[in-house]
Design a protein around this nucleic acid. Structure first.
Length: 200
DNA sequence: TAATGGATGTTCT
DNA sequence: GAACATCCATTAT
């Protein structure tokens, strides 16, 4: 298996997000491999990105975003869900890539059990759903994807058809086209349109 | 097919 | 106390 190097993550975040499409995210749970191909990802940066948690500087929640690249940034949102990000750019520069959807590959039965659904299409579509399927929660915050044995990336296949759009569910910073996805993938949902446009 | 609102709790002002 | 990088069922079109 080919592991991803830290240098990969230490670059301009939108580029990292785009190039992460096609990589396999692996979660090892009780010795079993649960995995899927990344088919949707979004870039978030600190300075100049009002949609980012890091826009207003360091807080207890977002401090991981300011640290070393290649680590998991896991946060709890909307009272119900966890979201998984991978930190990017050199230490001191706040940035991360939000993993929004996977195409399930290994451990499908376990993931179905974790999610409480049978529908393969909905298993790992959406950031809150994929963390539930992979049992990712705040205990994995700060986990180093470059060295971890329970959460890491392996080279998958190159995706042929990819698309770009604005990010899902953000109001501030809605103009940035920092969402990248595999075109036509059943696991890429359209997402809820943002409530307000930024500059009408 | 699109829009709406409830569940739910952490974070920051 | 308001806002929130969500999901899903329900209702309207």
């Amino acid at each position: 298996m080919v592991r991803i190097s830290r240098g990969f993550f230490e670059r301009y975040t939108p580029r990292v997000a785009r190039e992460l499409l096609g990589w396999r995210l692996v979660r090892v749970l009780d010795g079993e491999r649960l995995s899927g191909i990344i088919v949707e990802a979004e870039a978030y940066r600190g300075a100049g990105d009002p949609a980012s948690h890091a826009y207003r500087g360091v807080t207890k929640r977002n401090e991981i975003m300011f640290g070393q690249a290649g680590r998991a940034y896991v946060y709890f949102t909307m009272g119900m869900h966890y979201c998984l990000n991978i930190t990017t750019e050199p230490e001191g520069t706040a940035a991360a890539v939000l993993i929004r959807a996977l195409e399930p590959k290994e451990g499908v039965e376990t993931m179905k059990r974790n999610r409480g659904v049978n529908d393969l299409r909905r298993l790992t579509a959406g950031p809150g759903n994929l963390t539930r399927a992979l049992m990712v929660d705040r205990r994995l915050n700060g986990e180093d994807l470059c060295s971890s044995r329970v959460l890491f990336l392996e080279r998958g296949g190159t995706l042929q058809h990819t698309g770009v759009s604005t990010r899902v569910g953000v109001s501030a910073g809605a103009g940035l086209r920092w969402r990248f996805f595999a075109k036509g993938s059943p696991w890429v949902l359209k997402g809820r349109p943002s409530v307000r446009a930024q500059n009408p």
